[in-house]
Computed example of a mutant assay.
Amino acid sequence: MHVKPEVAHFLRQLRMSGVFYCNTTARGDWGLQMPVDPQCLSFHVVTEGSCWLISDGMPKLQLQEGDVALVQLGREHMLAANPDRTVAPRVDQLPQRYLSENYSIVNVGCDGLFTRLLCGMLSFDAPDVHNIVQSLPPVVSASGMNLNNDSSVVKLVGLLADELSEDRLGGEAVAVRLADIIVVQIIREWLSEESSFEPGLIAGLADPAIGRVLHAIHDEPEKPWAIADMARLSAMSRTSFIERFREVVGVAPAAYVTNWRMEVAKTRLIETNEPIAVVGSSVSYSSESAFSKAFARTVGISPSAYRQTAREQSR
């Protein structure tokens, strides 16, 4: 597997937080609507049987035993035994047995064909990785990749199937860790197989000249990034750099720098108790007023309101 160095750098920072894991056993003509969170990637691993993944605006996808599917942030979708199903109960609103705060066991149906799967929702701690995940297609399926029996994904799914098939001591902890690793491996496999990307962060990182600039911006958001500095780093003329950056990343360089600074600031606002002025200084703003105006213009609300809202939602 070969992943470009610029992309590999970000994958090494791939830190996830499990929001929800559900070990599901389903029989008969079942269906489950998945909860939606715009900050979370959903995943589904089928360890026995088969099912259909149904989401508006995309072809219905059949998942067979051993298949894995990643569903884009905030995308509504359901899993069902029947591809023609249009409605289903929300899985998180069904009776279930919780083995830990974020791991439950759900049984649906009582007769008919048998399916076992582990579903989950993951959030990503680093804003750069979050942006990479946003660049993935609506659904990434292992069944659409050239995976052989020696693939790490295939082996990991086999281990997960063993854990889910028996009630073992600490089984949920092992299952959660295996599921997280499977998600990382699927993202790596997809990145290594794709030869071209839609405009965005991944396409930018895969471009040698633009990738150098993105890498530097992400490492030093506090630096006063002038167009001349970025063009020099890319070894391109100012005009060529602006055109190439917009073509590959999809936005102008200055807009990207501002957006990235705000992503970093949002993370610091949530994860630290630093004063607003300190957060602003960490992303290049010399005054609290200038930072607050830029943040409100980009994000839609003030830094203090964003911090308060984010913390209230996490309780």
Rank of each mutant, 00 (worst) to 15 (best):
L191Y: 06
D167I: 07
G158T: 03
S192I: 05
V157K: 02
S143W: 09
V154W: 10
I202M: 05
I186C: 04
G200I: 11
L122R: 02
A231W: 08
I242M: 02
G250V: 07
L191H: 03
D180L: 11
A161E: 11
G170R: 12
G250F: 07
V183E: 01
F245S: 04
I181A: 15
V248M: 03
A175W: 03
L118K: 08
A179I: 08
P221C: 10
D207F: 06
E172K: 00
E220A: 10
M230L: 01
S234A: 15
P138N: 05
R188T: 08
V176W: 08
V176K: 00
M236D: 03
M230R: 02
S165G: 13
G171C: 08
V129K: 15
E166P: 10
R246Y: 00
S165R: 07
S151W: 02
L201V: 04
A228V: 09
S240G: 02
L159I: 02
V129L: 15
P199L: 00
R116Q: 11
I132G: 03
A175S: 11
E193Y: 00
S234K: 01
S240H: 04
I132T: 04
A231F: 06
P137Y: 03
A179Y: 12
L205M: 03
N131K: 10
M145G: 13
E222I: 12
D229V: 07
K155T: 06
A228Q: 08
P221G: 03
P138Y: 03
R238T: 11
E163M: 09
E243R: 14
L117C: 12
A216V: 09
S151N: 05
A175T: 02
L201M: 09
L205I: 11
V249G: 11
L147D: 01
N149A: 05
R116K: 09
A231P: 06
A173F: 13
S165T: 06
A209M: 14
G204S: 04
H130Q: 13
D229K: 09
E222W: 15
D150Q: 07
G120E: 07
Q134G: 06
I227E: 10
F124M: 11
I182N: 02
P208R: 01
D167N: 10
I217G: 03
V184R: 12
L201C: 08
L164R: 02
S123Y: 05
L164H: 05
Q134N: 14
A203H: 01
P137H: 01
H130P: 13
R212E: 09
E198R: 04
